[in-house]
Design a protein around this nucleic acid. Structure first.
Length: 680
DNA sequence: GATCCTCGAGTTCG
DNA sequence: CTCGAGGATC
């Protein structure tokens, strides 16, 4: 080979690679890009075309080589330079202190040691090899001694630098540097990915961990490249030169080399402070950008940690303070069915009781029968239960690997569990219905709804009492509550003088509820609080409403042909006409004058509010009332049309959405200012 | 006709 | 809170 001089093309290629690597780092590691996506694309395309013209200049660390190479037959085995250890677990602060006492007895220096606390990332452990600063090999953890070579897949991970240091001028990497990291998918990206998969009718992933692990074990790297894998590095496994001897310095050193490191690591002078920090995160785990199953407490002094040795695979110098599990498996004992107030039949899971996120779960909804069929959930299965930030636990799906073969596919119920009527599946609907208008289960749910908070608000009439009243035959439709007498209640289980009197008084009070609430209370399909309010304003009374035709109803905002049809259908049924008659005779017949509500100046007219979180000085109901009093509107979800989002304590996803859409966020004081007409 | 928005309905444990 | 579906809007 004749000696070549460095050509202009070569220089340009090198410059482009440096720039692209730098911008990758800004974008994927620091999350702070300095150029637009458009400019980035331009650089990338230029490099790509130069490399196409000069294939001899393509190198392994070129950013264009992230996706490349042919699918593999299988992964090559790789020996790790040292054992990739796991971690001992502690499930409580006491267990952490016990760990500390044990190691303090082994070495007196522990007593005055500092600790680093970092999230215990729930992803796939990877081992990354850099030779002379170039990424040459990436492996899975495997059994801790030997892993699999997944270099091609890891190269598609954008936050993994193909060369370190990324920026010149920082610390230099030793000739050989092997780091330990975690490949994972950020929560936000996981959700985005699943939404996209769902839209395309593809199978979604159960959780970020499985998705990440699955993606990295693909033999075809182009599949991996389509998954939004991220990386966090937190330890040095091996190095040929001097590297920091303290964990806190290691993190900083890795960060300075341009490697992504975990967010929210912290240093503590005492164990107590470290434990406090770990406990603090236990209740705020949702704020971490990725899933973590605990916090790791490590001795900052790595030489001291090393000298303590290990118990089996668990090094003594660190411990994982586990969060209460938010994802567990348990046995599906049976599938039960509920009857809703509209007659919809919904399945629910009866589970072997299991702790999830600090509470014992025995039951969980299965949404609808399509869900059961799609996930192929069978009685006897082990199922994965999740109870994330929300309170409500739900079944994610069966663990197919744990099947014994005895589990039979679930078949739809054919009869109503309450009245035995044949169930019908209406055309074009997911739901299965019990169409028996006199079905006792439906009546119970109807009565519960009628007495509920957004309806007639009868205190003391919940589902238990509703069940008793229906079972005793004291109530055959919701209007019957107004003809109940004290003696009726006294024959019910758990009722004595006082309770009967209280309930009767509550029923009496409910007679003066507004027309809007009464319309809502009737439980007409498709008519809820909002629509009931619209109907009340439009018709002013039940008399006028019951004479309405489809054409009159579709004139009301928010009511289209379907709901109009549903209302007319409800009004036309004999039992409902008799129900209305009973209400009238009981003098439960409110009216609403059209101009009654316009007392306050309508200064918020046309403005839409969304409430999230808990307000300190007022309940959400009060806030809603106030906003509506001034002509404003309160809706449940944030959209472009939302004017204000009012955020209280521990707000939900709506706050994030508001930020995303650039909608003004008010705190409680801000809401008061707006209500008072000051500021905006 | 497609997309965006809003409403309704169902939901668990302590 | 989240989903699905009905309704409104472009």
């Amino acid at each position: 080979m004749p000696q070549r001089k460095v050509t202009r093309v070569e220089e340009r290629i090198k410059k482009l690679r440096d720039q692209i690597n730098f911008h990758n780092y800004r974008y994927y590691v620091l999350d702070a890009p300095v150029i637009s996506d458009f400019e980035y694309d331009r650089l990338y395309r230029e490099l790509k075309s130069l490399e196409a013209e000069h294939p001899e200049l393509v190198t392994a660390d070129s950013p264009t080589q992230r996706v490349g190479g042919e699918p593999l037959d299988k992964f090559r085995k790789v020996s790790h330079p040292g054992p990739i250890l796991s971690l001992g677990n502690a499930n409580s602060a006491e267990e952490v202190r016990a760990w500390f006492d044990r190691i303090a007895r082994l070495d007196r220096r522990v007593a005055s040691a500092s600790f680093v606390v970092e999230p215990k990332l729930d992803g796939l452990t990877v081992v990354l090899h850099y030779e002379k600063g170039i990424f040459v090999l990436g492996a899975t953890r495997g059994d801790g001694d030997t892993g699999e070579d997944i270099t091609a897949n890891l190269k598609t991970v954008k936050s993994l630098p193909l060369r370190v240091p990324v920026e010149p001028g920082g610390p230099q990497s030793p000739d050989r540097l092997v780091v330990r990291g975690e490949a994972l998918i950020l929560r936000a990206q996981f959700e985005q990915m699943n939404r996209r998969l769902e839209q395309n009718g593809e199978k979604t992933f159960v959780n970020p961990r499985n998705a990440a692990a699955g993606a990295l074990r693909q033999l075809d790297p182009s599949i991996t490249a389509r998954r939004p894998i991220s990386l966090r590095c937190y330890a040095i496994v091996d190095a040929s030169g001097g590297v920091p001897k303290r964990q806190s310095a290691v993190i900083e050193y890795l960060r300075d080399l341009g490697l992504p490191v975990p967010e929210h690591t912290s240093m503590h002078r005492t164990l107590d402070q470290a434990v406090l920090e770990a406990e603090r995160w236990a209740s705020r785990r949702e704020e971490l950008p990725y899933e973590a199953d605990g916090m790791v407490i490590k001795l900052d002094d790595l030489e001291l940690a090393e000298s303590l040795g290990a118990v089996g695979r668990d090094p003594r110098g660190a411990i994982a303070f586990k969060f209460a599990a938010q994802e567990v498996t348990t046995r599906l004992v049976d599938i039960g069915v509920n009857v809703g107030r509209t007659g919809v039949i919904t399945p629910y899971a009866i589970l072997e009781p299991v702790e999830v996120g600090g509470v014992t779960v025995r039951q969980a909804t299965l949404h609808n029968f399509d869900f059961v069929r799609e996930k192929d959930i069978r009685v006897g299965d082990r199922v994965l239960i999740k109870r994330a930030g929300e309170v409500i636990p739900y079944v994610i799906g069966p663990v197919r690997e744990a099947r014994t073969g005895a589990e039979a596919p679930y078949s739809l119920p054919t009869k109503c569990p309450s009245c035995g009527e044949r169930l019908e599946k209406l055309a074009q609907e997911v739901a299965v219905y019990c169409l028996n208008a006199a079905c006792p289960a439906q009546l119970v749910r109807n009565l519960e709804h009628f007495a509920g908070r957004g309806s007639m608000d009868i205190e003391g009439l919940g589902i238990k009492v509703a069940e008793l009243l229906v079972a005793q035959g004291l109530v055959t439709d919701v209007a019957d509550v107004y003809s109940l007498r004290k003696e009726d209640f006294l024959q019910l289980e758990g009722f004595a003088e006082k309770r009967a009197e209280n309930l009767l008084a509550a029923i009496e009070r409910s007679k003066s509820q507004s027309l809007a609430r009464l319309v809502n209370a009737l439980g007409i399909r498709g008519v809820g609080e909002v629509t009931a309010g619209d109907l009340a304003r439009r018709f002013g009374g039940l008399g006028a409403l019951s004479k309405a035709a489809v054409g009159d109803l579709t004139g009301v905002e928010g009511i289209g042909p379907n709901i109009a049809e549903s209302i007319v259908d409800w009004l036309g049924r004999g039992r409902n006409r008799s129900l209305l008659g009973k209400l009238r005779r009981a003098d439960v017949w409110p009216t609403m004058s059209t101009d009654q509500e316009d007392a306050a100046p309508q200064k918020l007219a046309g403005r839409t509010f969304v409430l999230t979180g808990t307000l300190a000085g007022m309940t959400r109901e009060v806030a809603t009332e106030l906003i509506e009093k001034f002509g404003g509107k309160v809706t449940g979800s944030v959209s472009k049309k939302t004017d204000y989002v009012v955020a209280g304590e521990s707000p939900g996803s709506k706050l994030a959405k508001a930020r995303e859409l650039g909608i003004q966020v008010l705190d409680e004081a801000g809401l008061r200012r707006v209500l008072a007409g000051r500021g905006r």
